[in-house]
């Protein structure tokens, strides 16, 4: 699971060479909207060369290819589908598009004898996609779903607002589908990179509806996104105490026990275990001071 996915423009060498330093859980190298029509070839070749140069980066790498309604997507896939990447981010994805992408991926993977099985993150950015969310989530190789609020609002002929009422429904529906299939529910990026308070509020809304991650369009948004989507120090403390008590109970051969007057059973222990796992993964455990 991830908390953040950072968009990196595919034709920008200065950003690409620093893609691994910003601390994003995943990056999405963008061949689509961030690259002008005339530079599609240059971006493709640059990203391919970049992927050949890296060795065990600390973050997951996804590539946003051009839509299946363009003439670029096949060349994109030919260039970037390698063992270096974790998945493809597919714009304007409907079930039929993902199915086509799956076929293309099988073909490339077998032709190039790849080790890895490439994942897919569909972008939900049309009314039709919203209606297909559950079907999309159920398809094979789907690692998460990304909400694209700008295009979706255009399709719905709605104005984007700072409160985000217009995307409450797709956010919630996506959250349920992703939870059901144990995949990442990734919120739409917050487009005003200078408004940090707005970003905090937007992250909290998404989190309250059950999304577990947010896309970032600028590295400076990552700190805030991580603050919101990481387990809080209080939750980590609680989880630690639950697990400690569980161990004690286990040692004493007790099945059920109580902590702070509340009964602790298996689901609660599982929840605590999950919190500790993500705390470890995101290096959030407080420093044991010297």
């Amino acid at each position: 699971m991830v908390r953040s996915m950072l968009f990196i423009p595919g034709n920008n060498p200065a950003m690409l060479q620093n893609a691994d330093v910003f601390g994003a859980d995943a990056v999405i190298i963008d061949l689509e909207d961030a690259v002008s029509i005339q530079e599609k070839d240059a971006a493709r070749i640059l990203v391919k060369a970049y992927l050949e140069s890296i060795d065990h980066p600390p973050m997951k790498i996804y590539i946003r290819i051009n839509g299946l309604d363009t003439t670029d997507y096949e060349k994109d896939l030919q260039s970037v589908v390698t063992d270096q990447i974790d998945g493809i981010v597919l714009p304007k994805a409907k079930v039929c598009d993902v199915e086509r992408l799956l076929t293309l991926l099988y073909k490339i993977e077998s032709e190039t004898h790849m080790q890895k099985i490439i994942g897919i993150i569909p972008i939900v950015e049309s009314a039709k996609s919203v209606l297909e969310i559950e079907k999309l989530a159920a398809l094979s190789r789907i690692q998460g779903m990304l909400l694209g609020a700008e295009d979706l609002s255009a399709d719905m002929e709605l104005m984007r607002t700072i409160t985000g009422t217009e995307i409450e429904y797709p956010r919630a529906r996506m959250a349920f589908a992703c939870k059901a299939y144990k995949i990442d529910a990734i919120d739409t990026p917050f487009t005003d990179t200078s408004d940090n308070l707005g970003l905090i509020a937007d992250c909290q809304k998404a989190q309250n509806l059950g999304l577990n991650a947010k896309a970032a369009i600028h590295p400076n948004q990552l700190e805030t996104i991580h603050d919101v989507f990481s387990p809080s120090l209080q939750r980590i403390e609680w989880a630690k105490r639950v697990l400690k008590a569980a161990k004690k109970a286990d040692d004493q051969g007790l099945g059920v026990f109580s902590l702070d007057g509340k009964m602790i059973d298996k689901p609660i222990i599982e929840r605590a275990t999950k919190i500790m796992e993500s705390a470890k993964r995101y290096r959030l455990l407080p420093v044991e001071n010297a």
């Binding site: 060498p13 070839d41 240059a42 640059l46 050949e52 140069s53």
Partner: peptide
């Protein structure tokens, strides 16, 4: 101040163009 892979990519793009 491009890194090696950037120079390589730009050259390949220029050739293909």
């Amino acid at each position: 101040g491009a890194l090696d892979y950037t120079i390589r990519a730009r050259l390949l793009t220029a050739i293909s163009r």
